Simulated assay, not measured.
Amino acid sequence: MRFDVYGPLVVSVLLAVAGPLTGRYVAPAAAARVLAAAAVLTAGATTWSLVLLGAALLGDAPPVVREARENGRTPTAPVPESIALAACLALVVVAVRVHRAVRDERRTRRALRRLCAGHPADTELIVASSAVPRAFAIPGRPGRILVTSAMLGALRPEERRVLLAHERAHLAHRHGLLVTAATLAAAADPLLWPVRSAVVYLVERWADEQAAATVGDRRTAARALARAALTAGPAAPGHALYFGDRAVTRRITALRAGPPPSLWSAALAVVALSTLPPLLAADATGDLFGLLTGRPH
């Protein structure tokens, strides 16, 4: 209990370092899945560790102390009271952050669905008349692709194919779920924010690779990405091709460099690392139960 309970926090730091590196040596599809799952597992274990630290205050509760003395035991404090109180405060912050993340996610999805209102249910592509060049993959049943007329007008026919293939990849592989999972994990454990950023980047790289495979020309895919980025300028994650100065440069370079690497040992290392937080949290749970009940774990 004295050490295991802090293990998930240590793993969070390690994942924050390993996340961006994983994307360099593992294919985007595998890396995005592995990192999203690792973030969820670690965030859950970290939150549970905070619960355990807060629950340590129960060791000072009168019934527990009285029972310990009646059984001839000396009550043992699992952690200092100041740490337990800090953990309780941290849990409040976590609850607020997760609530805000869920609220923002729902608000964004409702806004995007409203843009599709009035169109037939079997319509995949919706073209909105707008001078703002944007495109979105809108998850749901059915999934929709919303593209503005300005974006379509800025691209050549073969580049439009890249754009649509990119957005279809987002829908087909449910990239929205991976990003949402990583976002909620980072809301619960801010140490995982670099992992969330890596997942956002990797799903875009994944969609880039799918688009390049669909059109059969990596150079055309890179050119479409560059032209769309210059046309649209910086945009938030979830927009067409996700534009950002550093991100788009890295993605264009990756498309021109050839197929991504597939170093499975790096992915397996992240998987192994992500199993540690639940195991450590489970061991800490048993230790705390033993301390409170007088039964050694």
Rank of each mutant, 00 (worst) to 15 (best):
M1V: 07
R2H: 08
V5H: 01
V5G: 02
V5R: 04
V5F: 01
Y6F: 14
P20H: 04
G23F: 02
A27K: 03
A32W: 03
R33T: 05
L35F: 02
L35T: 06
A37F: 09
V40P: 02
L41Y: 08
A45D: 09
L52I: 09
A55K: 05
G59P: 04
D60K: 13
P62C: 03
P63F: 09
G72P: 04
G72K: 09
R73C: 04
T74A: 12
A77Y: 01
P78Q: 10
L85Q: 12
C88K: 05
A90C: 04
A90Q: 01
A90G: 02
L91M: 10
V94E: 07
A95K: 03
A95T: 08
H99Y: 10
H99W: 08
R103L: 11
R103C: 03
R103Q: 12
E105F: 11
R106W: 05
R107C: 01
L115H: 11
A117V: 14
D122T: 08
L125W: 09
L125Q: 08
I126P: 08
A128L: 15
A131F: 03
A135V: 06
F136E: 06
A137C: 07
R141H: 10
G143D: 03
G143M: 05
L146Y: 07
L146K: 14
T148Q: 00
S149N: 00
A150V: 00
M151N: 02
G153P: 01
A154W: 02
E158N: 07
E158H: 15
V162Q: 11
L164P: 12
E167S: 10
R168E: 08
H173S: 04
L177V: 13
A182S: 03
T183S: 15
T183Y: 04
L184K: 14
A186F: 01
L191P: 02
L191V: 13
P194A: 02
V195P: 07
S197M: 14
A198V: 12
V200G: 06
R205C: 12
R205I: 07
W206C: 11
A207N: 09
D208I: 06
A211H: 07
A212Q: 10
A213C: 13
T214A: 15
T214C: 12
G216Y: 15
D217I: 12
R218H: 14
A221R: 04
R223V: 05
A224N: 15
A224F: 03
A226C: 06
A229Y: 09
A232W: 13
G233Q: 11
P234Q: 05
P237H: 00
G238D: 00
L241M: 15
L241W: 01
F243R: 15
R246H: 07
V248Q: 12
R256S: 07
A257C: 02
P260H: 02
S262D: 13
W264T: 03
S265K: 00
L273Q: 05
P278W: 06
L280H: 04
D283V: 13
D287K: 15
D287V: 14
G290N: 11
L291P: 14
L292H: 08
T293N: 03
G294N: 10
